[in-house]
Amino acid sequence: MKTGRIIMVVGNGTVPAGAGAMIDAGDLVIRFNDCRSVGAGGTRTDIVAVCNTGRPARIMLEGGQWKSNEAVQRAREIWSVRSGAKFTQMRAELIKTYPDLGDFCDDYTAGFERFSRETSRSHRIVPVSVHEQLDQDLTRFGSQPYVAPSSGMVVIADIISHFATSDDDVVLTGFDHVGWELHPFAAERQYVEALAAGGRLRRL
């Protein structure tokens, strides 16, 4: 029986019916980007993890809608999922293969840092070592060539390796492992199932 915190990691995918109250009862609730999980997935939001490079980051920072999002307003921390330096290094090779991704590596971390500072929130950047270790771990599941792991998978790996203690109960919901074709979702699903089988986390 786990005796530490209940850490709810809520993706933007399908959340089981009636799960909102259970999610809100957690000790820590982490959501992603525009927090589409709010509603059926409860309302409590302690941390918002953001994709801090490329078009999604630019849209979140420029539009004003993200900044006034009720879930973002509730959060006490913003986590930037990607290392700006790593993605800057990726740019030259990436656009050779995917010329339409010319802005994929644009780094908006400073904008999220500024927003956090101006609104009295903490800001944290997920260590680049998490991304690099995840790349290695995903090869065990035969992942096809991909551009980058999904933000959700990076955060899961970060929580398991750096954030949660052995006494914490890490609970996932809202992760369908489908979406952008240049994320390795099939391998990510297998990796999550392996973590669950090893008792590192569980699905709601």
Results as ranks from 00 to 15, higher is better:
I59V: 12
R58G: 11
M60I: 03
E62R: 13
W66R: 04
V29R: 03
D27H: 15
N33I: 02
R44A: 07
G20I: 02
G64S: 04
P56H: 15
I78V: 15
A75P: 05
I59L: 09
G18L: 13
N69F: 01
I47Q: 08
G18R: 08
M60L: 10
G13K: 07
P16F: 09
I78L: 15
G42R: 01
P56K: 11
R58Y: 14
P16W: 11
A21I: 07
A49G: 14
T14G: 00
A19I: 11
S68Y: 00
I47Y: 10
N33L: 01
Q65D: 14
I47M: 02
R44E: 05
I47L: 07
M60P: 00
S68K: 14
V72E: 06
P16L: 11
A75L: 00
V29N: 01
I47G: 07
S37Y: 06
V50G: 12
E70W: 02
I59A: 11
R31K: 08
L61V: 12
A57Q: 13
P16Q: 11
G39C: 04
T53E: 05
I30Y: 12
T43E: 13
V38F: 02
G20T: 12
V72I: 15
S37T: 06
A49H: 14
I47D: 03
D46A: 08
S80K: 00
I23A: 07
I78N: 04
S68A: 05
R36N: 10
Q73K: 11
D46I: 14
P56A: 14
Q65L: 01
N33F: 09
I30D: 09
D27R: 07
R58N: 05
T43G: 00
A75Y: 02
I78F: 00
M22T: 14
R36G: 05
E62P: 02
M22F: 02
L28Q: 10
C51S: 15
F32P: 10
C35T: 10
R31E: 06
G54D: 15
I30Q: 05
